[in-house]
Computed example of a mutant assay.
Amino acid sequence: MAETSIPQTTKSLATTTSGSSSKTADQVIADGLKYKGVPYKFGSSKNTTNTFDCSSFTQRVFKQAGVNLPRDSRQQSKVGKQVSKNQLQKGDLIFFRSYGSSSSRITHVAIYAGNNTLLHTYGKGGVTTSKFAGTSWEKRFEIARRVI
């Protein structure tokens, strides 16, 4: 797959990461972008890279960087340090609830890629990047966790 760069914007939610955590975050994002366009399939096995669901994708790219995560998004939402939306750094995991739901039940996970960008997989496009702030993704925000 062709490697794609993260779109640059003038508005950034990220603060600067430092040292090895920044290098690990850059590795996670670069590895994730290599899978851009790989199809989404709910319940994909952690042992395949032919398809991903949101949590098998995050589990795979973090494992490639030496960080072990649990298999599903609800379990992943309990590891690492909780961070607020305005303190997001590259490599943070962002967890979402269903659109229009008042429930706090986690239904999706994405990687914050910096510069107001999410790296994740869902729907027909498969692994992709999306804007965060000012979108339905931001409205569905439930919690963010720092695992690196």
Score class of each variant (00 low, 15 high):
48 T>R: 05
131 K>M: 08
37 G>C: 03
135 T>I: 13
136 S>G: 09
44 S>W: 07
106 I>N: 05
86 N>M: 07
12 S>A: 13
17 T>G: 12
140 R>S: 13
42 F>D: 03
11 K>A: 14
113 A>Y: 06
129 T>G: 01
29 I>C: 04
66 G>E: 07
146 R>H: 07
110 A>Y: 02
137 W>H: 03
33 L>E: 01
117 T>N: 10
123 G>F: 08
4 T>K: 13
39 P>H: 07
29 I>G: 02
94 I>C: 08
16 T>N: 09
142 E>T: 15
140 R>M: 14
78 K>T: 13
130 S>F: 02
83 V>L: 12
145 R>F: 04
60 R>L: 00
7 P>S: 11
59 Q>N: 09
122 Y>A: 15
133 A>H: 11
140 R>C: 12
13 L>I: 14
19 G>S: 08
8 Q>M: 10
28 V>P: 00
6 I>T: 13
118 L>E: 00
99 Y>A: 14
5 S>N: 08
122 Y>R: 14
39 P>V: 05
78 K>R: 14
101 S>I: 10
79 V>D: 05
128 T>K: 15
5 S>T: 11
66 G>N: 06
101 S>E: 05
61 V>Q: 06
132 F>K: 02
39 P>F: 03
13 L>N: 05
73 S>D: 04
24 T>N: 02
126 G>A: 13
92 D>I: 04
148 I>R: 06
97 R>N: 11
73 S>M: 04
148 I>C: 04
133 A>W: 05
142 E>C: 09
147 V>W: 06
77 S>H: 04
144 A>K: 07
53 D>I: 09
139 K>A: 14
74 R>Q: 12
137 W>L: 08
1 M>W: 10
85 K>G: 00
1 M>L: 12
98 S>Q: 14
15 T>L: 03
2 A>N: 10
1 M>Q: 09
103 S>Q: 11
52 F>K: 08
82 Q>R: 15
69 L>Y: 02
138 E>P: 02
43 G>Y: 06
126 G>V: 02
93 L>T: 06
6 I>S: 04
56 S>E: 06
87 Q>D: 15
138 E>Q: 15
86 N>I: 07
119 L>V: 08
59 Q>M: 12
51 T>C: 02
82 Q>I: 09
63 K>E: 11
17 T>H: 03
108 H>G: 02
21 S>K: 13
